[in-house]
Amino acid sequence: MTSVTSLFAPVEADLQLLTDTLKQLIGARHPILYAAADHLFGAGGKRLRPAVVLLLSRATMPGQEITPRHRRLAEITEMIHTASLVHDDVVDESSLRRGIPTVHSSFSNRVAVLAGDFLFAQASWHLAHLDSLTVVKLLSQVIMDLAEGEILQGLNRFDSSLSIEVYLDKSYYKTASLLANSARAAGVLSGSSETVCDALYDYGRSLGLAFQIVDDILDFTGSEEVLGKPAGSDLASGNLTAPALYAIEEHPALVPLIEREFSQAQDFEQAIALVHNSQGLARTRALAAEHAQKAVQALDVLPASDCKETLISLTSYVLSRLS
């Protein structure tokens, strides 16, 4: 499988600058925030979201250097993403993320909540200083969508009647909205046409959905070492994703197990077995591939460039995580 880090070669220097800037922006005010920032931004994350912003910024400005506003947009995107992870980990009581201790387990719930709040506040402040009302609206919508996604997930726990459509809505709010709206914002800052901006939004939305759908497959097929959390964590917590929803169509016996919240001995093990003995995982793979293909098609509006090729390769990388 191609390393995502090697894929980002066209913006490698941009991403290093982004990481250094983020540590300074977040950590300048207080030692504990600097420690949290170093923990968050020095953890070797993929930087997928800011990389997409930077790649699209360069792809929409061929032959020109990207502006400080493009760079700040990438930083804001990573701030919003990281803030949402910090808060998610507190809500989910997760001690690890990708095998690394979470902020609240390394410091405390209080520090984690305040660090997440501070990241959202910093993102909003820097967003206002981009002097683009359109971009402010786009990224403010993302923050609303992240909250909406968490609420939807909370309200639908252990709901075996959940539809694939509602599942995709929740996946959009929690994952794809940030990629979609920051992608459009990159086009806005480049002065791209409405047609191009629409296509960039479609790319981000489809890539984000494919990424989340693949994550939901890995929750059933990945090892705890790879996931950084126990396999089947989503199902155990009542977060029903596409593999389980498709499996329910084939195996109605799943319904009572879910509705009694796996309270009886062997309920959870039986549920996992029913998902694996269905077409749920195969159908979910097809769903991820469909969205990855839509992402590729959306890039037709861009001229040929190394950055465009990288954006196309990213869709293959997302699917290759299942290999």
Rank of each mutant, 00 (worst) to 15 (best):
42 G>P: 06
308 K>S: 06
135 V>T: 09
192 S>F: 02
258 I>M: 06
64 Q>T: 02
237 S>V: 03
131 D>S: 15
162 L>E: 02
124 S>L: 11
281 L>G: 05
14 D>S: 15
100 I>G: 06
266 Q>I: 01
107 F>H: 07
133 L>R: 15
102 T>W: 09
71 R>F: 11
188 V>R: 05
45 G>D: 08
308 K>C: 09
222 G>H: 00
129 H>C: 00
69 R>W: 05
195 T>K: 02
229 K>I: 07
127 L>S: 02
182 S>A: 09
273 A>R: 11
262 F>G: 06
265 A>M: 01
323 S>H: 14
42 G>D: 09
290 E>L: 06
197 C>P: 03
193 S>W: 03
290 E>Y: 14
37 A>Y: 12
219 D>I: 07
225 E>P: 01
183 A>T: 01
219 D>W: 05
123 A>R: 11
286 A>Y: 01
11 V>S: 13
284 T>Q: 06
251 H>Q: 01
177 S>Q: 00
152 L>D: 13
34 Y>A: 15
278 S>F: 09
307 C>Q: 13
297 Q>T: 11
100 I>R: 12
185 A>R: 09
97 R>Q: 13
8 F>E: 00
14 D>L: 09
279 Q>P: 03
264 Q>V: 05
314 L>C: 10
312 I>M: 03
42 G>R: 04
252 P>R: 08
64 Q>W: 00
218 L>H: 10
1 M>R: 05
113 V>Q: 12
132 S>K: 10
4 V>F: 02
197 C>G: 03
90 V>S: 10
44 G>V: 07
222 G>E: 08
108 S>D: 14
256 P>E: 11
273 A>N: 06
33 L>Y: 10
262 F>E: 08
164 I>K: 07
57 S>G: 10
210 A>C: 06
194 E>P: 00
303 P>A: 03
216 D>G: 04
80 I>S: 02
87 H>A: 04
139 L>Y: 13
31 P>A: 08
186 A>P: 12
247 A>Y: 00
315 T>V: 09
106 S>P: 02
92 D>K: 11
35 A>D: 15
22 L>H: 10
150 E>S: 12
291 H>N: 14
158 F>L: 12
240 L>Q: 00
272 I>K: 13
209 L>M: 13
297 Q>I: 07
147 A>F: 07
152 L>V: 07
85 L>G: 00
34 Y>F: 07
36 A>G: 15
255 V>M: 01
102 T>Y: 08
130 L>Y: 06
174 K>N: 08
3 S>N: 08
185 A>S: 15
244 A>M: 10
193 S>V: 03
243 P>G: 05
229 K>P: 05
9 A>Q: 14
280 G>M: 06
78 E>K: 04
56 L>P: 00
76 I>A: 01
11 V>F: 15
